[in-house]
Write a protein that binds this DNA or RNA. Structure first.
Length: 220
DNA sequence: GACCAGGCACATC
DNA sequence: GATGTGCATGGT
């Protein structure tokens, strides 16, 4: 399994090079982006983050202090704006109450405890928690998302119905706990997913790789 | 104009 | 424990 995963990584890396994922200016922006991108195209999230910056709301204290209506309008482009206004504020409330509003303090906590705490915040599920742990706190956690499951299932590596935790365990048990590797691996999966999952949902010509067209560099 | 996007919480069985 | 539903904007 380790070899299959590394082969997948190598093919994607050969095609895309270094992704430098996650895009974002600092740990707090990354954490907010992780919440805003729930079931939402990243382009829409970018608009909302740009709005936050323009409005001077890209810090936990300001998000909590401003009116609900103002924050909703700023977040509107990211979709589900009423739900997400609540969710980002739940995160900010925990950050301010427990860590003086500082992501560096949050990141100081041990991985296991921190993951449980993040999952205890209403609006932060497994994927969002792991995004924050890996990209905002630098913890060695493998992030699973819809692309991860789809790409691996289409390559026949896993059952499409595999759950979040078993899929996370598959990566974490077969790869060394390397933050940079995990960051880049997930980044490559996101880029591959954006490129192929919708544009090329099927590949009839390639029996080994139902995802990608024959002759594509990503053929595994 | 239909369909989808890097989820999550909650209700119901 | 599995399955269904609401949440909402913007691109294809």
């Amino acid at each position: 399994m380790r070899e299959r995963l590394l082969a997948l990584f190598d093919h994607m890396a050969a095609h895309y090079g270094h992704t430098g994922w996650w895009p974002g200016d600092g740990p707090f922006e990354i954490a907010i982006g992780a919440i805003l991108t729930q079931n939402t195209a990243w382009t829409n999230v970018e608009r909302a983050i740009a709005n936050l910056k323009t409005a001077g709301l890209l810090c936990p204290e300001a998000m909590l202090a401003c009116s609900t209506g103002e924050l909703e309008e700023v977040l509107r482009p990211s979709g589900y704006f009423r739900v997400k206004t609540d969710r980002v504020r739940n995160f900010c409330r925990r950050l301010v109450d427990g860590y003086d509003g500082r992501m560096e303090e949050l990141a100081r906590r041990p991985l296991g405890e921190l993951r449980r705490e993040l999952l205890g915040i209403k609006g932060v599920g497994p994927e969002t928690a792991d995004d924050i742990l890996l990209y905002a706190c630098g913890k060695p956690v493998f992030v699973v998302d819809a692309y991860t499951r789809r790409i691996l299932a289409r390559h026949g590596v896993v059952d499409p119905a595999i759950g979040y935790e078993p899929l996370r365990a598959l990566f974490e048990e077969n790869l060394e706990a390397d933050v940079d590797l995990f960051k880049e691996f997930h980044g490559l999966i996101v880029w591959t997913g954006k490129d192929f999952c919708r544009k090329r949902p099927r590949c009839e010509s390639c029996p080994l790789c139902p995802l990608l067209a024959e002759g594509q560099p990503l053929h595994v």
